[in-house]
Write a protein that binds this DNA or RNA. Structure first.
Lengths: 191, 191
DNA sequence: CCTACCGATCGGTAGG
DNA sequence: CCTACCGATCGGTAGG
């Protein structure tokens, strides 16, 4: 929470609201109120409501890539790396729930241009996962009949968490991550 | 496609539009146009836009339960049954894409009452999967450290399909189902 | 950042 | 099922 200016507060408020109610159901008046200003004043800081969405997706993409990306090149074999990546990915979901939700949901209510950019950012992130899956396949530690299908299966399972996990529930995110790492390694026949 | 009255046509149109654009971004004028009438005339057949949503969720829940439910009591051991259920589940997603999408997405733009009912229907459906998972655990054919976590993992992976599968792509839904059955059985250490 | 407001569009209704 | 319309609310702007 370094420099926290008004613009950041607006984006933060929008992320929470988009995550909770969806893009369309969130009004610029909701966002302004949450940020402590009036809706007209919002436009001194942003161009459009849709730009706000894009900014959230970009920051979330950075969160995920920043947490998971460096792990691809760290020491360790593919199963170990994948375990770290899963923990990091679920960690971001846990710490940045609202941002993650906006980022992971392909919101169909937006303009094509916005959706294309959001999709591009997600695809770029997915390549990190491909890299490690391929590494494990090359080393013979992962068994996959169809790599891209397997990646989709795994990432869908992981991202599903955002639909049911609530902090303070029966399991901590770390406990969930421990379980999920095991399940994913089973999928890959790696244990 | 038995009796196909105007009301059914309206619900069908709404399902396609809600799936494509979301509940909020779909207007009653969109729905009416798709059904070939004017928006005011819609209200001779429905009470509110939200009722339309509920009706779609109810029919989709019936689709899934009708296709998967009977398989729980059929002949065969748990792994065989689970394989059949996965194929049936993906079959519904394939044949009733729009309905499935509306049903599977917990739309946060709706009233509490509506969301509670939709959640109830989804929970009821999930119990079918719990039954078979428990059967496999009892027979020693499935290995799970945490049954409910494993169910969430598996169903998230399966339902993720609705976000990427498009008919006419590289793989048929049957081919995807074949792969996914194998991956799920691996998760359960059942092969 | 506020006041004051815009044109457009929304879900839904009355009366036929 | 249409015509005609309602009050409310929407994203965004002008002028300060």
């Amino acid at each position: 929470m370094a420099r926290k200016n008004r613009r950041d507060a607006i984006i933060e408020a929008a992320a929470e609201l988009f995550a909770a109610k969806g893009f369309r159901a969130t009004t610029v008046r909701d966002i302004a109120e949450e940020a402590g200003i009036l809706s007209g004043s919002l436009y001194a800081h942003i161009a459009t409501k849709e730009d706000l969405y894009l900014e959230i997706v970009r920051r979330a993409a950075q969160d995920f890539s920043g947490a998971v990306g460096p792990l691809v090149d760290e020491r360790g074999d593919a199963p170990v790396k994948l375990g770290r990546m899963i923990r990091a990915h679920l960690g971001v979901i846990d710490r940045s729930r609202a941002w993650a939700r906006v980022y992971l949901d392909d919101d169909s209510e937006l303009s094509e241009a916005t959706r294309v950019e959001a999709r591009r950012l997600r695809r770029e992130y997915e390549r990190l996962w491909d890299a490690v899956l391929q590494e494990g396949m090359a080393s013979g530690q992962f068994l996959m009949a169809d790599e891209s299908l397997t990646r989709l299966f795994i990432l869908s399972a992981l991202n599903g968490i955002i639909r049911w996990y609530r902090p303070g529930g029966r399991l901590s995110i770390e406990a969930v991550a421990d379980h999920y790492v095991q399940l994913v390694l089973r999928v890959l026949k790696a244990d």
